[in-house]
């Protein structure tokens, strides 16, 4: 019972932490531009404000428009409940594997892209088309990176993969995990809609992708969408932490270990967020038609991670 409660707590913890991570990157960006930036409270206050505001629904919207935020939120939470956070178990990790994880996120995106087309505005169609294009290239890279890792770990479940890589001496697997890490990092940047693939801070029609899709949303729905987006970003960072830096994660649900694990987890997440933020600060947004090159790099990295194992590992 306590195991279930602990796993449930992990999901709430991710939900609660997600705005803070986004805030952290915003703050980094502000610092790099000699601005003060918002305070931590602001991240939560924004969400709270949006949740309480009334909404304006476009006159051309159908039920898809109303259904999307809930589907997106639920599918993101379902994916979030599959990753181990503080200890090596997760709430619903037993229901599926990495493939399910990827396709749950795809379900949310499917509705997001549909809702963008629903109102019949130019912005929506543009964002929808771009988002689906980029994600159709990012998804195979993500899957292949997972498959490269599972090739070694001989399991597709996120929990067991994390446990496996915790037990393996990091140096010994570095030759392929480093490449898989590169691939997953690029996918993380894509999926969280950050520079150089998308710009979270713009409303310029030439550059925006995610923002273009949700342009017609307001109030509670917008809060749900934004929150889902933040949770998705944190889930990807957690995934990176679980798979590549699984050190310090608690093997059992006892309390000293969990406290330890919490400290480690926060450190890992904020370091990874720092990396993502650093890339965002130090690169400029790619032209839409250059973005596939970056995703091709992710795909090649993932393939090499697999090939490397064949060449150096079991294959010979």
């Amino acid at each position: 019972m306590s195991a279930v409660l602990l796993s449930l707590f992990q999901v709430f913890f991710l939900m609660a932490l997600a705005p803070a991570v986004s805030w952290f990157i915003k703050k980094m960006k502000a610092a790099s531009q000699n601005r003060v930036g918002p305070s931590l409270i602001q991240a939560y206050a924004d969400l709270w404000k949006l949740f309480r505001k009334d909404m304006v629904i476009p006159e051309t919207a159908s039920w898809i428009f109303h259904a999307m935020p809930w589907v997106l939120f639920a599918s993101t939470l379902a994916a979030a409940s599959m990753v181990p956070v503080l200890w090596t178990r997760s709430l619903f990790g037993f229901t599926g594997d990495v493939i399910l994880f990827v396709y749950l996120l795809a379900l949310g995106r499917f509705f997001l892209a549909l809702a963008a087309l629903d109102t019949g505005t130019t912005f929506g169609g543009m964002g929808s088309s771009r988002e689906m294009t980029l994600s159709s290239l990012a998804e195979p890279a993500l899957l292949l990176a997972f498959f490269a890792l599972s090739f070694r770990a001989r399991t597709l479940s996120l929990e067991s993969m994390s446990v496996y890589f915790a037990s393996e001496p990091p140096m010994q697997v570095l030759f392929f995990t480093s490449l898989a890490f590169g691939a997953l990092l690029i996918v993380t940047i894509t999926e969280s809609g950050r520079i150089p693939l998308d710009n979270p801070a713009t409303h310029l029609e030439l550059t925006m992708i995610h923002e273009a899709m949700i342009l017609e949303y307001s109030g509670r729905y917008l809060a749900l969408i934004e929150w889902s987006h933040q949770i998705k970003q944190l889930v990807f960072l957690t995934l990176l932490a679980d798979l590549f830096f699984p050190w310090g994660i608690a093997a059992a649900g006892d309390f000293p270990a969990l406290g330890f694990s919490l400290v480690f987890f926060l450190a890992k997440i904020f370091i990874l967020a720092f990396v993502v933020g650093w890339i965002e600060i130090h690169s400029s947004k790619l032209r839409l038609f250059r973005a596939p090159d970056l995703l091709a790099v992710a795909f090649v990295l993932a393939i090499l991670s697999l090939l490397g194992q064949l060449i150096i590992g079991r294959g010979l």
Binding site: M171, L174, F175, F176, S178, L179, L301, L304, G308, I312
Partner: peptide, 13 residues
């Protein structure tokens, strides 16, 4: 050996 493996993959990259 692990280090050379890592460096080898970096070489490919």
């Amino acid at each position: 050996v692990s280090l050379t493996h890592f460096l080898g993959m970096m070489l490919v990259i």
